[in-house]
């Protein structure tokens, strides 16, 4: 238990630093922004109390905001995603439910399951984030394209991380 908490705290810090020090400085295109830090919410243990999920999501979002000068924006999107997570997990649940002592990772539930699950989670986060960022529906299509392309990029980085960092 303590080990899991400790590991999550470290993951929180590492993902935050990767996001603000590395990824926010990689300039690809106005349509491609990777937001790798959402991996933290994706990987939270199944048994996490739902309120704790929301509070940590808020803390993660606000930390990213402090670095990017967009107070409240990432917090909103991350809390939104965390709120819908239990529901999404129940939709994608395997027939026998989730087994105890397992985590939402490729290693335990396979590539297909993880791809679908992380794709939906990242999409929810990005759609909230990008529409809050422009704050109107005038350029609906160009913003939507931005959501789609960034979702694909973020999801690919998340999937890759499963093979490079979290092999077990």
């Amino acid at each position: 238990m303590i080990r899991i908490v400790g590991r999550n705290i470290i993951r929180f810090l590492v993902l935050l630093l990767i996001q603000v020090l590395v990824l926010d400085n990689i300039l690809i295109n106005a349509y491609l922004n990777p937001y790798f830090y959402v991996l933290f919410i994706v990987l939270m243990p199944f048994e996490t109390p739902r309120w704790l999920l929301l509070v940590t999501a808020f803390m993660l979002g606000i930390s990213v905001d402090l670095f990017t000068n967009t107070l409240g924006m990432h917090a909103f999107a991350t809390v939104f995603m965390a709120f819908l997570r239990p529901w999404i997990l129940s939709i994608f649940a395997p027939r026998d439910g989730y087994e105890p002592d397992t985590f939402p990772r490729v290693f335990y539930y396979g590539f297909n399951w993880f791809l679908r699950y992380s794709l939906v989670m990242v999409f929810l986060h990005h759609i909230a984030l990008f529409y809050i960022e422009v704050f109107h529906f005038q350029d609906f299509l160009s913003t939507f394209l931005r959501v789609i392309l960034s979702t694909l990029l973020t999801t690919s980085t998340i999937i890759l991380s499963q093979y490079f960092i979290y092999r077990k």
Partner: peptide, 21 residues
């Protein structure tokens, strides 16, 4: 519904921060 309540409170804080900043 405490879960929904926590959600609404946090999102409200985020929106307030967003509009004040």
């Amino acid at each position: 519904y405490s879960y929904v309540l926590v959600f609404l409170v946090l999102e409200t804080i985020a929106i307030v921060l967003l509009s004040n900043h």
